[in-house]
Simulated scan of single mutants.
Amino acid sequence: MSSAHLINVDFKCIAGSKHRGRGPLVPPAPDPHQLFDDTSAGFPHSQGAPASGIDMGFNTLLTDPVANVAVAYGSSIASQGKDIVHKEIHRFMSVNKLKYFFAVDTAYVTKKLALLLFPYAHQNWEVRYSRDTPLTPRQDINAPDLYIPSMAFITYILLAGMALGLQQRFSPEVLGMCASTAFVWVVIEVLALLLSLYLVTVQSDLTPFDILAYSGYKYVGMILAVLGGLLFGSDGYYVAFAWTSCALMYFLARSLRMKLHPSLAPDGMGHPRGSGRGQTYVTLGAAACQPLIVYWLTFHLVR
């Protein structure tokens, strides 16, 4: 083959390559069966990096032993706090303890009402126990109960409504105010006695239910005072008020004296096993407040 022929062939190849280089780039024809266009090629692959980084960081946090220990410690503290709250609620609002204060019968209610109205002849004020457990009210007249205070509270509200109706002063708002005032005074009295026991550091086996029971016995005297006022006027009210107030103070002084400190119970020789100035102050203070509360809750019902 001659050199001229080789030069001619090379020239054609170069020309053909240049011609192909100048031609426009034609994209491939789309597939007629494809529903959506593929746009993934238009976005850089670097945009997916943050998501993978977050996933890697979250997985690292979960697999970090320090984080696992912190989570476990926090769960343990939350569980302990929940158990403590449930324990305290069960301590103050136990259903079994509440049933104890309503374990009464007709004989107990009759004897207890007589004791509240005339406590001066009663000798033994000590609460009896059986295997370190106090006897129920139906078995021991000295045991506090909540049946008489609750029934007396309801009776007082009904009697107050009747007294207001006889005086042409009855209205649902006034009766509701009377009931709420009586309830608030009981709550204040219970909290004040608990605070007094805490401040003077008195050792006692009194529970909030015990204090509520002793505070609720005043409604028996309030009922008699209002009845005396309705039947015999102001003179009857003051006579009934004086009698029930003295009886209530004597009853509380003797009952709380035995409950505030177990060592105050008499020993085998009939002498008290101990005494304390704090117990005396708390007992006398609680007893002295009863006539004031009774008068405040009843004097406006009698005119």
Rank of each mutant, 00 (worst) to 15 (best):
Y147W: 14
P28N: 07
L175G: 11
P272S: 15
S17R: 06
E173W: 09
S215Y: 00
P27T: 06
M258I: 02
M269L: 11
S2I: 11
L116A: 10
H86C: 05
L301C: 01
H19M: 09
I14K: 15
I148T: 04
W296S: 08
Y198H: 12
Y281V: 13
L25Y: 08
R128Y: 01
K112G: 05
V186D: 09
A51S: 03
T201E: 13
A288P: 06
G74M: 10
E88L: 08
V186R: 08
N8P: 03
A163H: 10
I141Q: 01
Q203K: 07
P172M: 10
R277A: 14
L164G: 07
T207V: 07
Y250W: 09
V66N: 03
A160Y: 06
A67H: 11
S196R: 12
L301Q: 00
I141P: 00
K12T: 08
R254Q: 14
Y237K: 08
S150D: 03
I223G: 01
Q203C: 00
F299R: 15
M56F: 13
H271D: 07
L212I: 11
G176N: 07
Q139W: 13
A143P: 07
T155D: 02
T207S: 15
Q203L: 00
M269R: 09
L25D: 05
R257P: 00
P149D: 07
Y100F: 13
D132E: 13
D55G: 00
S171W: 11
P134L: 11
W296V: 05
P27L: 13
A265V: 10
T201Y: 06
P137K: 15
S180N: 10
K112S: 09
S234H: 06
L284Q: 12
L227H: 02
D37Y: 08
C13H: 07
H5Q: 14
P291A: 10
T136F: 15
L193C: 04
L199E: 04
H300K: 13
A213M: 13
L284P: 05
E189W: 03
L297S: 10
V282N: 06
W185C: 14
W243C: 07
V26I: 15
P208T: 07
A160H: 09
L25P: 01
Y250K: 04
Y238S: 03
P137T: 10
M177A: 08
Q34Y: 02
V66I: 02
A29P: 04
E173R: 09
M1E: 10
E126N: 09
F170V: 04
R128Q: 10
L301K: 00
I148P: 00
T207M: 14
L197W: 04
D132Y: 09
D31Y: 04
L195I: 13
Q139R: 15
Q203F: 02
G233A: 06
A103W: 10
T39D: 06
E173Q: 10
G165H: 08
L113K: 01
P137A: 13
P65V: 03
A182K: 01
A288C: 12
L146D: 01
H33T: 08
Q47R: 11
S94L: 04
L115K: 08
M56E: 14
A182S: 05
P208M: 11
P262A: 06
A288M: 14
S196L: 15
S2F: 15
N8F: 09
P65N: 04
L260E: 02
K99D: 02
D37K: 10
Q168E: 02
V302F: 08
L135K: 12
D31S: 11
S40G: 03
D210P: 05
D210T: 03
G165E: 06
I157N: 09
A286Y: 12
Y238W: 14
T280C: 01
